[in-house]
Write a protein that binds this DNA or RNA. Structure first.
Lengths: 350, 350
DNA sequence: GCGTGTTTTGACAAGGTTGTCAATATTGGA
DNA sequence: TCCAATATTGACAACCTTGTCAAAACACGC
């Protein structure tokens, strides 16, 4: 007979009795507090192991101040970007004994501070998380940062943010990545390069564009305003941009899209317009999302280590929670990678 | 000055004092228990409102038996299917005052019962959820169901399961949906129809195939074993199936894929082989995932109301939690929808 | 008016942990 | 050897709610 039913689970008292010490000593050992002899420490550990002891979260957070809960705040689930980050964050939480809960807060960007506060309290007051992982576009929102700070909730941000923002940050070097892309294109011989921006409230949109601009200038090329199009990071906006380019008298020979979804839209529009990618126009994306290998041709792009970003974010957060020194600022930059696939080629000989 | 900082939050005692009643009466009112005069009830409600009182989850779950936590268990995040369901589930949880946490358990299917138990305990023992939303392919796994039952954790399953499985279930009519697809194809005049299966551990694979088979028979057509291919629900397996079909002496005139990702792979393979969809071959998917409108041509498919499935799952679970009658079985079938897009057409005249 | 039965209310314990502070054991120096 | 200082340990309160059970209030029938 398989033993499955969990009997009355062991409490700290039981561990204490078995180890022949007081409850408080057990607490000390299990929380790695100082002032316990090594001998007792071992004894307690053994007893806990033997009894298969697991501390009660509710009791802990009732008495102590921790909830062992981390909240991932984003404005919309469903995007490849959010999901991949979430994946890494969940794994890291499981490893660290934390629990990840998802908070979906919509359209927070346009709200006033009291409204933002109400939204957060609505979701978080019942069980206040020990920390929040803030994703784009909220990562860069000052009002949201302010509200969370006033609520006393530590935050780690994922993605590029304005330089004045303090605190924990995990990102890649969007700026350098954009330079890498432009360098690749100029090395192929492209001079007339178009750009499709992401949604304007996200900092990455600005950063990627300035990397693009600087690299263009460094290559002795001008950024033609007619070849810079707005976008929303959605497929459809890329498609629209693609159709715009099609109507130009002189098309760009290459287009750098601020993300993969839009790049796929651009490629779709170009193909529908009778052009071949990369024979007529090269296209580069950003993210290395699923779609990059599901579209044809395969998309040349920048790989963001999304799930690593999520995992590092959680680890940073938990580490800072354990440090005496609060509001420590820390910035982690993970490596991106240029992924050469099939949507780029030298410009067509005229 | 905006008041943002949450001061020492009100406790039940404060509400009791303000309302001039005992703590227990407040508890009764707030939990909608009987045996309180309407007059007092009103008074307590007003006091709670005035003090902006929010009960402490930790205290509640320490003393009571609820954790106000629901766990979504799946074997992999990142798929469109899981994410869309999760989206609906998160929203429903927020509405109901619950919190959704994600449990990622990998490869549980191949494990023994003690291993499964260990995996669940590893994730859930610290804070036992009030219930679990079980997604495919775990929804149909008997061992997992057994373990959760023994742990005393209520379960709601999403997606088709074996008929002998009791309990809460939210699904669409996969069987009927498959019949709808075949009917559409036969109405167009197709006779030689291929099928690509999903991964074998998922019940939906069997159900969709049997719907396909029955509808074929009903239309007086034979299911040609050479036109039935295995798959994994992944894009790549659809691509492989597409390449297989290409090599046949006589291609099917239409292919029914068990999901959209594979359908996209099939279309990609056919197009690479120089065939046009739907001119040479019609393709139908299942799910109406993102990719259905990002590929070209747009994919004809069956829409599953995924986020509704997630939302209903949570609501069912919470409802059953509040009922005295435990292990009540309940089955909810949501409506699917046939979505006609551009990958189906009458078979080519020979 | 009194006893009986029912409804409403409250006092108090319990749940499992951590923080405080006092008690005890240990060390070092005179 | 003894005292002071320090390191280790434990007793007990506190955290905030819910469950139990007894007390109080009320209704009803005689």
């Amino acid at each position: 007979m398989v033993k499955v039913k969990s009997e009355n689970t062991a409490k700290m008292k039981d561990v204490a009795d078995l180890a022949g010490v007081s409850i408080k000593t057990v607490s000390r050992v299990l929380n790695n507090e100082p002032h316990v002899q090594d001998k007792l420490r071992r004894k307690v550990r053994e007893a806990a192991e033997k009894l298969d002891y697991v501390p009660s979260q509710s009791a802990r957070s009732l008495r102590g101040s921790r909830s062992y809960d981390i909240s991932l705040v984003c404005h919309m689930a469903g995007s490849n970007y959010v999901n991949a980050i979430q994946f890494g964050a969940v794994i890291a939480c499981q490893d660290l004994g934390y629990q990840l809960s998802i908070s979906l807060l919509e359209n927070l960007g346009s709200k006033s501070i009291p409204e933002i506060q109400a939204a957060f309290e609505g979701v978080m007051r019942r069980r206040k998380p020990d920390g929040v992982v803030l994703l784009a576009p909220y990562a860069n929102d000052e009002k949201i940062g302010f509200v969370l700070q006033e609520m006393g909730i530590p935050v780690v941000r994922v993605g590029p943010v304005d330089t004045q923002t303090k605190g924990l940050l995990v990102e890649i070097d969007d700026y350098q990545a954009s330079i890498d892309v432009v360098r690749h294109l100029t090395n192929l011989g492209h001079k007339r390069i178009g750009f499709v921006r992401g949604s304007e409230e996200q900092r990455s949109t600005q950063v990627r564009f300035s990397g693009f601009s600087v690299a263009m200038e460094a290559a002795g090329l001008k950024v033609d305003p007619d070849l810079v199009r707005p976008g929303t990071f959605q497929f459809e906006s890329g498609y629209d941009a693609g159709r715009y380019f099609l109507k130009l008298d002189e098309l760009p020979t290459a287009i750098f899209s601020s993300n993969d979804d839009m790049a796929a839209g651009i490629v779709a529009a170009l193909q529908e317009g009778g052009l071949s990618v990369p024979q007529h126009v090269s296209v580069v994306g950003f993210d290395d999302a699923d779609i990059a290998t599901r579209m044809r041709p395969f998309l040349t792009t920048i790989r963001q280590p999304l799930s690593d970003l999520g995992a590092h974010a959680v680890r940073e957060l938990v580490t800072s929670l354990n440090e005496a020194d609060k509001n420590g600022a820390h910035r982690i930059v993970l490596k991106h990678e240029f992924v050469l696939r099939d949507t780029t080629a030298p410009p067509r000989k005229l």
